[in-house]
Write a protein that binds this DNA or RNA. Structure first.
Lengths: 213, 213
DNA sequence: TTTGTTATATAACAAATGTTATCTATCACC
DNA sequence: GGTGATAGATAACATTTGTTATATAACAAA
C-alpha cells in the first residue's frame, strides 16, 4: 500500500489560488505553487494531469469567491446598488481574480462579465421590480444600464486607473441611477416622489455591507 | 564605413506593431518580430537596447492609431456619440491594441482609459456645450457618465463577451444619453424639445463615420 | 519483519525567451 | 582597388517554463 497522502488536492489548489490572487494567473506555475507549499513539483503532477487542469480549478474557486461577495450585496436595502457596490469591492480587494474572471475572453477561463450581469440581474430582478415598481423588462433594462457603469468602475480600478473615491463612485452611480429611473418612469403607476435624491445618496455613501468575516 | 542600413528602426517597430495587433503585446518577442521581417534577431538588438525599448515604441504607435480613430469621431454631427462610436470601433477592429492601451495598468504601458476619457472630454467639450447648451462642468459630467457606458461596451467587445450588435449598443447609448440629459437639464436656458428621441436614434444607427481609408 | 504500491524528491529534457559573442560581408572613404 | 567600421547571420548561453523518467522512502498488508 502507498504511503498516506501528505498534500491533498485541495491544498494544492488553495496554494495555486493564493498565487493567482497575489501575482495573477500567469504566475501560477508548477514551481511557484510547489515553492509556496514547500514541496517539489512532484505532487502537483501526481494530482493534476497538466497545469491547465490545475488552473481550471483555480478558476472555479475564484468564481466561488466572487459569488460570496455578490451574495452579501443582496442583503442591503437597495438591491442594485448593493450588488454594484460589492462588485466594485471585489474588483478592489481581489483585482487579480477580477481580471481572471472578467477581463479574459470567456472561452479562455469561463464566465465573463456578461454572465456576471445576467446572474446579478436575475438575483436583483425581484427586489428591483418591487422597490422601483417596474415591470420585469424595464427593470432588466434599468439594471443593465447601471451595470455598464459599475463594470466600468470596477475595470478602471483593476487597471489602476480609477481616480474616483468610493464616495464619488457612489455619487455618480446615484446620479445615473436617478437619471435612468426618471427616463424609464413613463411606466404606468410609478408613484411620484419615490426617488428622494438626497436620501438615496445618503444611503449609498453610508451603507457599508456587513463585513462578516 | 559601415554598410548601408538594410532594416530601418521604423521597419522593425512596424513589424512589432503588426505582431502586437494580431497576437497581442506578449507575442512581441525578438524571434517573432525577426521572423516577420525575414531577418535574424541581430538587427533588433542593434537598434534597440532591450525588447522593452522596442515595446515602448510599439505602444507609441498604438496610441497614434487610436488617436486617428478618435479624431474621425469628432467629424460627425453628434460629438459625444461620434467619439463613443469610434472608441467602440477601435475596440472591435484593434482589440489587441485596445487591451494594450486601456486594459493594462497605466504605469506599465502609459495612458490608460481615464486618460482617454480626459482627452475625449477635452476634444468634445466645445461641441457638447454648444449643441446641448450646457455649461462646461455639466457637459463634463454628462460626458463622463456616458463614457463609462462606452468604456464598458468597448471592454466587453475586447473580452469577446459583448452580446450586443452595433445597433443595440447605439440604442442603449441613446437611451442613457437621453436619460442623463433629461436629468441634467435643470440647467437654465436649455430649450425644451431639443431631444427628439427618434431623430437621435436614427442619427445614431445610420451615421457611419467617413471610412476615408 | 518483509514486501509491494505509490507519494514525493530529484534531476533531466525540451521548448521558448532575452541577450550576447563571434563571424561574415558590405560599402563609404582613401 | 584596398580597407576598416559595422549591419546582419549564426549560434551559443542563461533563464523560465511544462513535463517526465528515475530513484527514494513511507506504510499498509502479509
Amino acid at each position: 500500500m502507498p504511503p498516506t497522502v501528505k498534500y491533498q488536492k485541495a491544498e494544492i489548489v488553495n496554494a495555486a489560488l493564493e498565487v493567482a490572487r497575489q501575482k495573477g494567473i500567469d504566475a501560477v506555475t508548477a514551481r511557484e505553487v510547489a515553492r509556496r507549499l514547500k514541496v517539489s513539483v512532484g505532487p502537483i503532477f501526481t494530482w493534476f494531469e497538466t497545469m491547465e487542469h490545475l488552473k481550471a480549478e483555480v478558476y472555479t474557486l475564484a468564481r466561488e469567491r466572487y459569488l460570496a461577495y455578490i451574495e452579501r450585496g443582496l442583503k442591503g436595502p437597495i438591491p442594485f446598488l448593493g450588488l454594484g457596490q460589492q462588485y466594485i469591492r471585489f474588483a478592489r480587494e481581489e483585482p487579480e481574480l477580477y481580471k481572471l474572471l472578467f477581463l479574459t475572453p470567456p472561452g479562455a477561463s469561463g464566465g465573463g462579465a456578461m454572465a456576471a450581469l445576467k446572474l446579478s440581474q436575475d438575483l436583483a430582478r425581484d427586489s428591483v421590480t418591487r422597490i422601483y415598481n417596474m415591470d420585469a423588462a424595464t427593470a432588466d433594462r434599468y439594471f443593465r444600464d447601471l451595470w455598464l457603469v459599475v463594470f466600468s468602475f470596477a475595470t478602471l480600478i483593476v487597471t489602476d486607473d480609477c481616480p474616483y473615491t468610493d464616495a464619488e463612485m457612489s455619487a455618480v452611480l446615484t446620479e445615473v441611477s436617478l437619471a435612468v429611473c426618471k427616463a424609464y418612469k413613463e411606466i404606468p403607476g410609478l408613484p411620484e416622489g419615490r426617488f428622494d435624491r438626497d436620501a438615496v445618496f445618503r444611503e449609498l455613501v453610508n451603507h457599508k455591507p456587513q463585513t462578516g468575516e
